[in-house]
Design a protein around this nucleic acid. Structure first.
Lengths: 346, 346
DNA sequence: CTGAAAGCGCTAACAC
DNA sequence: GTGTTAGCGCTTTCAG
């Protein structure tokens, strides 16, 4: 299982008394080898524990069966679940993964990242870094001169670019409509940092749902957090003061919703009677918040899986000299998970 | 920034009017090149956007500056934080990462994983898969015949093997001693699955602390969960019934502690007055549980970082033909984070 | 200081 | 069916 010393194709050939070419043919399952020979070569391979060098292969075939994955914020739940999906799918499809993590979400100097990946001849790149501020600005002139196929995760739709993302706008609408259906009318929003595209989409979904219902969505009705639980506590208090008549709140992620629940509790506001609360993400722990949190669940593993699928398709086309048409972004639909925090008992 | 077509060292040499050897010397910063020539070559490299092929280099130098990382359970907090630490440190030290995720924690057939990594000539491997059942059984005969240096994370100490882990035994003792200091005496334990080495260590720490205090640690005083919040709720109820006089409980992770808090709440038991609760992990959200959860924090990023450091040391020694002595496992000390869930008001 | 030759481990393209 | 030649992109070795 664990061979101490790598053996080469040459050694196999020598021991088997054939040329390296024949060994190569056996390895690659080519048909034009005599059964006798094939048998003998196989045996020697087994005996020597020979494993062909993917490096040498990549070099000559100009194809590495390796994907570059660029992520940021691995210590957070979302990105790591996405990576989880990517890893599983890549394995299935026979690709290895070269992983790079950006030091910050808004890392600007991405040149070394690219160089490192390209130097290792990756067949394609998955850019799994959420769009924040203009951290995707480098894309400006470079769309058509990509050295290898790329797929982008969780960013604004962009002409000609293969984008895969969760439909955050839809998620925001789902959340808000659910609150409306429960009979809540004065609905606030505890938003994510508005630098984030995802946060803006969720806000827009909230606004749209309120407007569709003929209700106002004023600036006093929402405040901005930074995704963290600690920011959520502060933000909800501000919301209480600037929108005192609020009956329910759509919180842009579950972490902030957690601390919002705690703050409401401290204020003596009963959830869901006095205050409906709905989160976003679908973290498993949300079922054990107090009260259990209704939330909009997104399947980030599926997101990663889809990205790999898309990228491999692009690579195949690229290899065949064709160019796959990008017909708009792939949007994943999030889904409601209804629990007690919005179940109005009245 | 994004070069469409890779240029080769040959092309650079041609344009600069020198041999490839000279270009190579310039790339590698060798001193024996005339300043004039160096200048010219640099310019051509710039102009062509030339990037040396790490693949070709790896092939000839028999060194890839790539580490294999094998993980499992990326969708959970712990493993991904560890990977976070690994990625950051590897980048700093000039290594790339080839990532493999095992489909399950107890994947037995690791041969294809190894083959894939070795085929790509990784310089070393970080085995970041927690020890569960005998999922490390394959190690038995293979310690001394490792093809490349390896470092193991989160497993039992093993002679001659470089192991890096959090001291879970210490963590368990810390947690329990803290409860004792708060005046709790009848202390239960909601353990993790005993197949896991980490879970057993935490249990052992709990037992040791109780025994040191001259208190019993009977089998009726602890139950086993499976790390998930849903299991925590069930387990704490069982604990209530089989150890009704329990005054405090050490829960083996924060997820289960969360649902334990909820269950206690539903039962009408006040935390921390009627029941002290302490968790393990240090997830940021624990500060916003109700009440805020005291916990034993482990620095999993540091764990990853240390592993890389250790592995690179081993690789350097390996390259130099030496063999670094392994002097027992590297144990990281976890630390208490004290919050309201154990702050007895009496 | 610079270059020519050889080769890392493998396979494409051709011969026989 | 099988072997030979050449070469992927680079660096080592040695000659000049």
């Amino acid at each position: 299982m664990l061979q101490y010393k790598r053996s080469t194709i040459k050694e196999v050939a020598q021991v088997a008394g054939v040329s390296t070419m024949t060994v190569s043919r056996v390895i690659n399952g080519r048909p034009d080898v005599a059964p006798q020979t094939r048998q003998r070569v196989r045996q020697v391979i087994q005996q020597l524990g020979y494993q062909p060098s993917a490096l040498a292969r990549s070099l000559i075939q100009q194809r590495s069966y390796t994907l570059g994955v660029v992520v940021a914020g691995l210590k957070y739940l979302g990105p790591s679940r996405t990576l989880n999906g990517i890893a599983a799918k890549a394995e299935t499809m026979g690709y290895s993964l070269l992983l790079k993590e950006l030091p910050h979400f808004d890392t600007r100097d991405i040149t070394p990242i690219f160089q490192s990946l390209l130097a290792r001849h990756v067949d394609g790149i998955i850019w799994a870094v959420p769009q924040i501020g203009d951290n995707h600005a480098w894309l400006q002139g470079h769309c058509t001169e990509q050295p290898v196929p790329m797929v982008f995760l969780t960013m604004e739709s962009w002409p000609e670019l293969p984008v895969v993302a969760v439909d955050n706008y839809l998620g925001g609408r789902l959340a808000t409509r659910h609150l409306l259906e429960q009979g809540y009318r004065r609905i606030g929003h505890l938003a994510g940092p508005q630098e984030w595209w995802e946060a803006r989409q969720r806000l827009a979904g909230w606004q749209a749902a309120l407007q569709e219902a003929g209700l106002p969505a004023l600036d006093t009705q929402w405040v901005e957090g930074n995704w963290s639980s600690s920011s959520g506590a502060q933000a909800i208090l501000q919301l209480f003061s600037q929108y005192p008549e609020m009956e329910a709140v759509f919180v842009a992620n579950d972490q902030m919703a957690l601390s919002a629940l705690q703050a409401a509790h401290r204020r003596g506001r009963q959830v869901p009677q006095d205050l409906g609360v709905i989160g976003f993400d679908g973290m498993p722990e949300a079922a054990y918040f107090w009260p259990p949190l209704t939330t909009v669940a997104q399947d980030q593993q599926a997101l990663g899986s889809l990205a790999v699928q898309q990228l491999v398709d692009l690579i195949e086309a690229h290899q065949a000299g064709q160019s796959l048409d990008i017909t708009g972004p792939v949007l994943l639909e999030p889904g409601l998970v209804i629990r007690e925090s919005t179940r109005r008992l009245s």
